[in-house]
């Protein structure tokens, strides 16, 4: 190694580095190919977890979501794709509380920056893996995310 810069040192160093390159590509030659043949494997296609398809609001079995209608997502959205329609109701113990009426999300103007899900304090909204969102009418892209008749999940005490 002391003669690293002389003629033969450089020669053998170069040869070994070429060998490393050849080994790497040969390993790649036999690895499983990552190409997804989309329309054929539509049924078994698994998108990766972090893929941002469309915004969704998960509901549990009792048709409850976690949205408290605080409107942080609406403020965070740079494109104004989110509109939170809420109303003020008075609870049994006399407190005033905001309640979600409609959560409107416009997929057409969403740029999938994920600022809304980051802003959400209750993790009420998240991006799904669904990506086949082509429609013939732009109005169909405006989605209401909360299910009809759903209510906010009560905190477990």
């Amino acid at each position: 190694m002391k003669n690293k810069n002389n003629y033969f040192g450089i020669l053998f160093q170069g040869l070994s580095s070429l060998g490393v390159g050849l080994k790497t590509t040969m390993k790649e030659f036999f690895t499983k190919k990552i190409t997804e043949q989309y329309p054929e494997n539509r049924n078994e296609l698994q998108m990766f977890d972090r893929f941002r398809g469309a915004l969704t609001m998960p509901h549990n079995a009792d048709n409850e979501h976690h949205c408290i209608a605080c409107g942080l997502c609406q403020n965070a959205c740079p494109n104004g794709s989110i509109r939170v329609v809420s109303e003020m109701v008075e609870t049994e113990d006399g407190k005033k509380k905001k309640q979600l009426l409609r959560y409107e999300y416009n997929l057409g103007s969403c740029m999938f920056c994920q600022l809304c899900t980051n802003a959400c304090p209750h993790d009420a909204i998240q991006f799904s893996n669904e990506f086949e969102s082509a429609v013939f009418d732009r109005n169909k892209l405006i989605r209401t995310l909360n299910n009809p008749g759903s209510k906010v999940a009560t905190k477990k005490s």
């Binding site: 590509t25 190919k33 990552i34 190409t35 043949q37």
Partner: peptide, 11 residues
């Protein structure tokens, strides 16, 4: 070339 680049090539 496709196999070396972890692709399938023309199919």
């Amino acid at each position: 070339c496709a196999a070396f680049q972890c692709r399938l090539g023309p199919n």
